[in-house]
């Protein structure tokens, strides 16, 4: 299987024209990024450009425990950003952007804008932080919730169309509840109400000494709330896809002596998966944006970070990189689902 894939991959001559174009574009981009990253100035090289005043401060504070000067260095691969700031009455602010082997001052004008964007993007990506920050948090939470939700939804969907009235009613009620109430309140219920009612706190699940316990507790609550919610939405998608399969398929399977379980797992669900892909992609994209609700329980996702920057720096352009990041994630996701749909359509 893998050998076959590698063989097909190596056989460039038989590639489709569009694949060749895509491959060339990607390769060109990779090479460009490689070159730009390679000729980019290092942190030390950039430090050399600092003003004499800053250099003097660095020298003065070298051995002191109390540092007035804050040095921020953000490396985004292709570009990097360096700034020196102090607080207080005679606040000093000096920023530089390094790009393509050159260094540009970023204290005013377009340079300042570029510097800010690099800095904000760096923070929103959660660079230099653990998994529970920025884009990493958004992707982790969305993907896990969708996977767990989708698995749950298969049972919910089968439950809803089950002949057993009790199972059908319970499944319907679940779906009705989670689609009929705001996701934010569901998140609050899981995060605040459940621990409150049962007398524990979400952070107490993790070891007492863990400095990230608060975040981990909030993450767990968000994961539970989003999974349960996406299960309800996916269940309707799964149900619709299953019921769209021709009745003749059930009859043929039954006439061949297959049990209900065998029919579902071998005949009906494999066929309905392809029909689920477009609405599931839709649901996935919605979920990425819904995950921004975690700002209400203080998790540091893209949205929370941009709001924090907005509040502390008062820069209304901070949302620009946030929007671009969301768009890029959505574009990649749509592309992947499109490929998946094509791949599953081989028999049509």
């Amino acid at each position: 299987m893998i050998m076959k894939m590698i063989k097909r991959l190596i056989d460039v001559k038989r590639w489709k024209r569009s694949s060749k174009t895509a491959a060339i574009t990607i390769m060109a981009a990779v090479v460009l990024i490689g070159i730009l990253s390679a000729i980019k100035l290092s942190k030390e090289e950039m430090m050399d450009y600092a003003s004499d005043q800053v250099k003097q401060m660095i020298e003065d504070e070298k051995d002191s425990a109390r540092k007035y000067l804050t040095i921020t260095y953000n490396n985004l691969g292709v570009v990097n950003y360096l700034s020196f700031t102090t607080s207080g009455a005679n606040a000093l602010k000096e920023s530089y952007v390094g790009f393509a082997g050159q260094i540009y001052q970023a204290n005013s004008g377009i340079g300042k804008f570029a510097g800010q964007m690099v800095n904000y993007t760096y923070r929103m990506l959660g660079s230099g932080e653990n998994l529970l920050h920025g884009v990493k948090l958004t992707l982790l939470l969305t993907t896990l919730s969708m996977v767990i939700g989708f698995i749950l939804s298969i049972f919910l969907a089968l439950g809803k169309i089950s002949d057993n009235r009790l199972i059908s009613k319970v499944s319907s009620a679940y779906i009705f509840f989670f689609r009929g109430t705001p996701l934010l309140i569901q998140l609050f219920v899981v995060y605040f109400s459940f621990p409150g009612i049962f007398g524990f706190s979400s952070r107490s699940i993790f070891p007492a000494g863990d400095p990230e316990a608060v975040y981990k507790g909030a993450f767990l609550a968000a994961l539970i709330a989003f999974s349960l919610n996406s299960a309800a939405y996916c269940a309707e998608i799964v149900r619709a896809a299953i019921q769209s399969i021709d009745k003749g398929q059930h009859e043929a399977a039954k006439a061949l002596g297959m049990s209900y379980g065998q029919t579902m797992s071998n005949i009906i669900i494999p066929q309905s998966i392809r029909r689920m892909i477009p609405p599931l992609c839709n649901e996935f994209v919605m979920m990425i944006k819904d995950v921004s609700l975690v700002f209400a329980i203080s998790l540091m996702d893209i949205t929370t970070i941009s709001k924090t920057i907005m509040t502390s720096e008062g820069n209304y352009l901070v949302f620009l990189p946030a929007l671009v990041i969301y768009l890029i994630i959505t574009a990649i996701l749509t592309f992947i689902f499109g490929k998946l749909e094509k791949r599953l359509s081989v028999y049509e």
Partner: peptide, 16 residues
């Protein structure tokens, strides 16, 4: 029931 095989008007083959 397995003693009986059935052929349908609309074939009902498994398309996948």
């Amino acid at each position: 029931l397995l003693e009986m095989g059935m052929v349908f008007q609309r074939f009902n083959l498994f398309p996948h």
